[in-house]
Structures are given as structure tokens and as C-alpha cells.
Amino acid sequence: MFDEAGNPQQLTLSDNAMRLDIEEILQALGEKIIGKQHQLKLALTCLLSNGHLLIEDLPGMGKTTLSHALSQVFGLQYSRIQFTSDLLPSDMLGVNIFHTGEADTDKQFTFRHGPIFSQVVLADELNRASPKTQSALLEAMEERQVSIDGTTHSLPSPFFVIATQNPSSQSGTYPLPESQLDRFFMRISLGYPEWDAEKAMLKQSNASTALSQILDEGSLTALQKSVDDVHASDALINYILMLVNESRSNSAYPNPLSPRASRALLQGAKAWAFISNKAFATPDDVQAVFTAITAHRLTSSSQHQGTGFDNSTYARESAGETLSKKLLESIDPLAA
């Protein structure tokens, strides 16, 4: 009732066009994944913030569908890597291959690009891969480039990794260490759909049809740029700092938030404000994205140390969420 009225800022004409795009995108995604509007918005926030997304869910919840849908909507080049325990880094990144042509000039190494050279990469079941492969992916995510045999290959732009992780207690998985988790901008989990949503999904006839492209390649960059233009006041930044400092000074949080996390919070809040059609970010926006951005960063290492099995992932997840909620509730946004 208040949201629209509460915004006195007039958006510019081009912004209006973007606004329409975003509504359209959300609607299109909503058709594919029913009843998960909040998660879709978060995923979109992540994409607009130029961060990588980690989806943690049981199989069959629509992780793949979501990632596929996102790439389709934005008209991005998409590839999917199914991670298995025997997947080698080179399988993902690519290899130098020696050409045995007739001419001497043909006889040389050429680089065969791996599946990671796509704009949207779905890293499916990331925790099944060996730590070596995991870290190769995470390094590529951070650097946005790949070094093979001394040569550096830039990854395409925009570059967006959606990694999925399977929390069930299955043997032969390698949970991601915290230091690596920090590289994911946010973590979401879709969860089971509501009764009505699932019913609608079951009734849907065109479930398998591909989504039409709504935006072209350049417009995503434009959208990301306008997110940067969203205003964040001192009061808002103070609020974020207070949250982050609380996690550092209170011993209840074994893994305090890093500066990367505070940057992510600011960026996420801006993107959320943008999606919500606002010209400036308010504490509401920080609160909306807070759990998704901080839960996986706050988890304690001791909580799953030594078990060796992945069955604690669920516990870890819920612990992270509890900590994140506790942290959010301990700071009054109006104190800043």
C-alpha cells in the first residue's frame, strides 16, 4: 500500500523502459518457476550486482530450470557443467591441443575452450567435484579469467556462475570451505513449492517450452550500470557497517563478515532497490537481501569440522540462517 506511494523520486524515461523490462523478466521467470517470487528477485539481484549465485537444494527443486531460464531471458550464452568426482580442471577450463597439420605453420598448440567460456555457467552439483576442480572454478569466478600453461584467457562478459549444491547426505561429496563460500555473492535455496503453486505447475502444459529472449546482451550491462547509480546515503552505509561490526565484535559469530561481504551487502541493497523501482536504497533493501548474502558466510567452521560427511550441510545451512537472523535483529537501523 505504501511502496509505490512512498517513492517520490521520478525515474527517467530510459529507467522507465528498464523498469518495464524487469517486470517482464520477473513475470517470465515466474511462469517457469511458480510461487518463488522472492527467490527469483534475489537471483535477479545477484545477476544485476554482477555476483555469482549458489543454490543449495535437494534434487528436483528447479535449480537447473532457474539458471536456464535466467540465461534465456537475458539472451546469454549458456553452458552447463555437471560436476562429478572425476571431473578434472582441464575438462572445465579447456586444454592446449597440438595440431598435427601438414604445414609447419599448422603444427602448433591451440587452445580448446572449455565449457566455462560462457556467459552463464551452471555448475551443477559443485560439491561432487574434487577440491582441485572446485578451486579452479572458484578462482575463475573471482578473477574472471583463466590461466592455462602460462597464457591468460579472459572469460566472456558478463560472466555469471550459478553453482548448485546438493545438501543431502550422499557419500563422495566435498563440502565447499568457507573461504570459497565467501566468493559467492549470495546463497538461496528454493525449497518445496506451495500447494497452489505446485498445482499450477502440474497443470501447466507448456512446461518444456523455452522462454523467449527479452533483453539483448548489452542491456544487462546497462542495467548493471543503473544499479550502480542507485543512491546509498551515509545513514544506510552506517547501518551496513554496524551490522558488519557487530559480527566482528561479538563472539557469537565465529566467522565474522569480511569487507567483501559488506560490499556485497551494499551492492545487493542497491540492486534490490532498483528492482523494487526505487532511486535510493533504504534499510528495507538491506534487510531483504541480508540473509541470502550473509547466511553462508556466517556459518561456523567448527560446526561441520571432523564429521567428514555431508549430512551436516543442512544443519550448517540452518545455523547460518539463524546466525544471520540474529545478527539482523541485533541492530536497529534507526540507530545509525
Binding site: M1, F2, D3, G6, T282, P283, D284, Q287, L328, E329, S330, I331, D332, P333, L334
Partner: peptide, 22 residues
């Protein structure tokens, strides 16, 4: 806000202004 809290009995705690209003 504190006057409102006292009157309505609804505590604001950590809620942002907008959420508390709602």
C-alpha cells in the same frame, strides 16, 4: 516511534521504518 510503541504495544525492535509502519 517510541510513543507509538507505547500506545500500540507493538515493538519495533530492528524493523526498518517502512516495515514497522506496515
Amino acid at each position: 516511534l517510541s510513543a507509538i510503541e507505547k500506545h500500540s504495544g507493538v515493538e519495533r525492535q530492528y524493523l526498518s521504518p517502512r516495515e514497522y509502519l506496515n
